[in-house]
Design a protein around this nucleic acid. Structure first.
Ligand SMILES: [Mn+2]
Ligand SMILES: [Mn+2]
Ligand SMILES: [Zn+2]
Ligand SMILES: [Zn+2]
Lengths: 136, 136
DNA sequence: ACATAAATGCAACAATGTTGCATTAATAAT
DNA sequence: ATTATTAATGCAACATTGTTGCATTTATGT
C-alpha cells in the first residue's frame, strides 16, 4: 500500500500525517478507535489529527465504521471518492474484545416506511468475533 | 403518563430528576439529544443527570436510540425490564432537521457470517422525515 | 419521627471536539 | 534550483461530555 501514491493520484497533498493515518489503518484488519490513532500518532498535534481525519473522510479515503460510548472507530474506504461515498456494508463489533470490523457484505436491506423517505441504511451487528470464539 | 407510579411499580425510588427525565421523554415523539436534556433539566446537576441516565438505562426505562457526532439520543423503552433489554427496532434520523425517532418495526433481519457469532443487530435508517418532506 | 440506604450536588480531572491565528511545508510557476 | 502561492500544521484556548470521590441531603420502611 503506497499511501503517497494514492494521495497524489486523487489530488491531495502528500503530508506525513496523511500517509501515517492511511498506513496505520491499512496495517490493521480492524477499524481503529480514535484513541488508538491518537496514541499511535501522538507525534502529531491532535488538532492536526482531528482535521486530517475530517479531510480524509470528506475525500472518501476513510470512514467512521462505528461510534459507540464516545469512541469513534475508523476504517479505510474501499470504493469512495470525493463525490461518491458508499458505506453500505455491515459493521461488526465484538462484545468481548471490542474490536470493530467492516464486513464486506453488501447491505441489501430495503426498508420502506410510509411518509418518510429513506436514503441510506446502516447495519451494526454485535456478537463474538472469531478470535474470541477460539479463545473460549 | 404517571412517571412516579411507573418508577414505584418497578421498585425505583421516586426522585425529581427521574420523574423529570421520563416526563420529558414522554412529552416528545422523538428521541431527545443529550444536549437538549441537559438544557431542559439544567436545574439539576449534570453529574446527577449523567448518573440517572445510566440507572434508567440499566433498569430498562430508557435506551440510547443513536449516537452520532458525539451526540447521544435517548428515548423511552417500550418493553424492557432490568433483566430483559430489547431494542431491536429501527432507528431513523432525518438528515434535514436531525430529529431521531424509534420506528417500531420489528427488526427481522437475520445475518449469518461464517466464524463469527452475532447476538444482536441494529438498524439505522437515514433520510427525510415527514415534517421535512412536507416543508419542501 | 427516626434510621438507613440511596440519591444528589459539588469539586476535580480526562478526553474529545472545535476555532483562530501565526508559522511552516508542499506544490506550482519561473 | 529558487521563488511564489496555497494549503497544512502546531499551539493556544475554550466548550462539551464522561467519570469518580466524597460530603450532604432525600426517600422510604419501621
Ligand atoms: Mn466500514
Ligand atoms: Mn429506540
Ligand atoms: Zn473479539
Ligand atoms: Zn426532518
Amino acid at each position: 500500500m503506497d499511501a503517497a501514491k494514492i494521495l497524489k493520484k486523487r489530488g491531495l497533498r502528500i503530508t506525513k500525517i496523511r500517509v501515517a493515518i492511511l498506513e496505520t489503518l491499512a496495517a490493521n484488519l480492524q477499524a481503529l478507535p480514535y484513541s488508538k490513532l491518537q496514541k499511535d500518532l501522538s507525534r502529531f498535534d491532535r488538532t492536526t489529527l482531528y482535521r486530517t481525519l475530517l479531510i480524509l473522510r470528506d475525500k472518501g479515503f476513510i470512514h467512521k465504521a462505528l461510534e459507540e460510548k464516545g469512541e469513534s472507530y475508523y476504517a479505510l474506504c474501499s470504493n469512495c471518492t470525493s463525490s461518491m461515498h458508499n458505506h453500505n456494508h455491515v459493521h461488526f463489533k465484538c462484545n468481548r474484545c471490542s474490536t470493530v470490523q467492516c464486513l464486506h457484505i453488501t447491505n441489501k436491506l430495503d426498508l420502506s416506511i410510509p411518509k418518510i423517505s429513506i436514503n441510506s441504511i446502516e447495519i451494526i451487528a454485535k456478537g463474538t468475533c472469531s478470535a474470541c470464539l477460539l479463545a473460549d
